[in-house]
Design a protein around this nucleic acid. Structure first.
Lengths: 165, 165
DNA sequence: TGACAAATTGTTATATTATAACCTACTATG
DNA sequence: CATAGTAGGTTATAATATAACAATTTGTCA
C-alpha cells in the first residue's frame, strides 16, 4: 500500500518541505508569504491533524504575534486561495495541501478515530462529479468531498482497553 | 432534461407529500414526528432554498412555538438521523431529502446565484468514492459531497441589469 | 528621497452557529 | 396511577466567523 498520513513518516520533513515549496510558489506568483501567513502555514503542517482557526490563533499568540481572530482568518483565506491549504467544511478545520503547484479541490478521507485527514487524488471522483454536473447543465466553481470513517491503521489497531475493563 | 429544483414546479405539492411521506415513515419506524419536528420539516420544505437553523427558529417562534436554539437543533438532528433532511456543511443549512425511504448520503449541486440545492443520485459518484476508500483500506461511515457553481437556469438567464446601469 | 497608493495587519466589537446543563412535561406501558 | 423513557423548555455559554475602521508596512515612481 502507498504511504499515507495514516502511516508513520518523518513529519518534520513534511513541514519544512511544504514551507519551502510555498515560499517558491509565492515568489513565482508574485504574492507575499508574510510572517503571519508563513507561521499559520507552519502551524497547520506541524499539527498531525486538521486544525481549527482558534487553535491556530492560540499558537500565534504563544509565539508573540499580537493577533486576533481576523488575523488568522485572513491568513487562512490567503493560504486557501493560493491552494496551500484546504478547509474541511465538515469540521471547520484546515490541512496542508500536498500538491499546491497544480491548483485543485481537495478530496479527503477523515478518520473518526485518529482524526487524521488523507487527501485523495482520484480521477474517478473528479470525473463522476463532472459527469453529474454536465447532465444537469451545471457549471462547477468548486466542490467539497469529505469521506468520514475509520482508516486502515485504526481498523488494524487492537480493540480499546475499555473492552478489558 | 429531467425536472429539478432549478426548474419551475408545484412546490406546495412537494411540501405536503414530503410531510405525509415523513409521517408514514415515522410510524413504520416507531419514532415520533412530534409537532415541533413536523413544523421544522415543513419550514425546511417550504423554503425554496436551503435554510439555516436560526431562520427556522424564527419561523417556529413566529408560529407561537416557545422555542430556543436547542429546540431547533434537536429537531434537525432527529430529522437528519431519520434521513428526512440533509445538512449542507458548506453553508450550514438544511434541505429536505427527496427519497428518505432508502437512507443515503446526499450529493448536491448548489447554485451560487439562485441558492437552490439539487440533490443528485449518481451511482458513479458513490462508486468512485467507494473505490478510493477501498484502495486505502478505509471504512466509510458517511460522506459529504457538495458541488458549488451555477445552475443551468441561471446560466440561461439574461445578464443582470447592472450591466445596463 | 519623499510622497502616495495599495496591501497587510491591528483593534474593537459583534454576528453567526452550536451545545452544555439542568429542569419540566409529556407518553407509553404495565 | 406509577414510573421509566423521551421530548421539549430555559438559561447560559462555547465555538466559529466577520464587519468596520485605524495603523502600519510595502512597492512604486515622480
Amino acid at each position: 500500500m502507498q504511504a499515507t498520513v495514516f502511516s508513520p513518516h518523518d513529519h518534520t520533513h513534511c513541514v519544512s518541505s511544504a514551507i519551502s515549496n510555498a515560499q517558491n510558489l509565492c515568489v513565482e506568483r508574485g504574492v507575499r508569504l508574510t510572517p503571519v501567513r508563513q507561521r499559520v502555514l507552519e502551524l497547520v503542517w506541524r499539527s498531525h491533524q486538521p486544525i481549527g482557526a482558534y487553535e491556530l490563533l492560540a499558537g500565534l499568540v504563544k509565539e508573540g504575534f499580537n493577533s486576533a481572530p481576523p488575523t488568522v482568518y485572513r491568513a487562512l483565506e490567503f493560504l486557501c486561495t493560493q491552494g496551500l491549504l484546504h478547509k474541511l467544511e465538515g469540521i471547520n478545520a484546515y490541512v496542508g495541501c500536498c500538491n499546491p503547484d497544480t491548483p485543485h479541490q481537495g478530496h479527503f478521507l477523515l478518520c473518526k478515530d485518529c482524526h487524521q485527514a488523507q487527501e485523495l487524488d482520484s480521477q474517478y471522483i473528479s470525473l463522476a462529479i463532472k459527469l453529474s454536473a454536465d447532465q444537469h447543465g451545471f457549471e462547477i466553481k468548486r466542490h467539497t468531498i469529505e469521506i468520514v470513517g475509520i482508516c486502515q491503521a485504526c481498523l488494524d489497531k487492537p480493540k480499546k482497553l475499555e473492552s478489558k475493563l
